[in-house]
Amino acid sequence: MLAGWRWLDRIGKVTPGTHAAAQFGSFGAHSSIGFPSATLMNTGSIHVGSGVIIGRQATLSVGYWPDYPGLPERGLVIGDRCVLGDRCSLLAHESIELGDDVWFGQDVFVCDASHGYQDPDLPVGNQFGSHVPVKIGAGTWVGHGAIILPGTTIGRNAVVAAGSVVRGEVGDHCVVGGAPAKLLRRLEPGVGWVGRRGDVRPVRRGHFGEEEFESA
């Protein structure tokens, strides 16, 4: 049974050269989507960069249903070398864009639309809200179980703590966390990483912080 599952896992992945990959708007070299996926819908409007790894049970979709009319050409764009953990859900209706080297933990949810509620006689699920683009800058890390709401813009090399609910604008080199997410720390050039109470952590260089950069 295990051998059979390994075989299914190998042939079930979406990789360049497979029929499934050919249905995407573009699908870069050395990229893969793990098997099984949860939902891959209207993939012609989805663009996946090179060297992207997307985990199992992922949902990538554009529009409200298959062959939804008026689909955007680039509804969901994932940059190069992104890593999206298992069970991530990215639901685009107008535009969700991830820059290069964006990493997600597991169970991250991103959507560019919500539901209305103002008609008291219509089920909320049938009240479609406005579409507001979402953009996540290059090099950003989004922790396990975070939720990125419509209209959010996150800058470059930012950090979103696990379990956070993010709405609005997050600047470059900022650390945010909580529900709703609040600024926890930001990089001030020549000073270091400054917390909300004014404490400073030094800048460190290298993958594992081997070198310490002097704080001012």
Rank of each mutant, 00 (worst) to 15 (best):
M1L: 09
G4Y: 13
W5C: 09
R6E: 15
R6F: 13
R6L: 13
R10K: 14
I11L: 14
K13R: 15
G17S: 03
G17Q: 08
Q23P: 00
G25L: 11
A29Q: 14
A29Y: 00
G34I: 10
S37D: 13
T39G: 05
M41K: 00
N42C: 03
G44N: 07
I46Q: 05
H47S: 04
V48P: 05
G49R: 06
S50L: 04
I54M: 07
G63N: 08
Y64M: 13
Y68T: 14
P69V: 11
G70D: 02
L71F: 06
P72C: 03
P72E: 07
G75R: 03
L76S: 04
D80I: 11
D80W: 02
R81Q: 11
G85Q: 08
D86E: 15
D86Q: 11
R87Y: 14
C88E: 02
S89M: 13
L90E: 08
H93M: 03
I96P: 04
I96G: 00
E97T: 15
G99R: 06
Q106D: 08
D107T: 05
D107F: 10
F109W: 10
V110D: 02
A113T: 15
H115P: 02
G116E: 09
G116Y: 02
Y117R: 05
Q118D: 12
P120M: 00
L122E: 13
L122D: 06
P123T: 04
P123I: 03
N126R: 15
N126L: 15
Q127M: 08
G129V: 11
H131R: 15
P133N: 08
K135L: 05
I136E: 00
I136L: 03
A138C: 03
G139D: 12
V142S: 07
G145S: 08
I147N: 05
G151S: 11
T152P: 05
T152A: 09
R156I: 11
R156K: 12
N157G: 03
A158F: 13
V159C: 07
S164Y: 02
R167P: 09
H173F: 09
C174T: 09
C174M: 05
C174P: 01
C174V: 11
V176C: 11
V176R: 04
V176M: 09
L183P: 01
L184A: 09
R185L: 12
G192D: 02
W193P: 02
V194M: 06
R196S: 10
V200I: 15
R201H: 08
G206H: 00
G206W: 04
G206M: 00
F208N: 15
F213K: 14
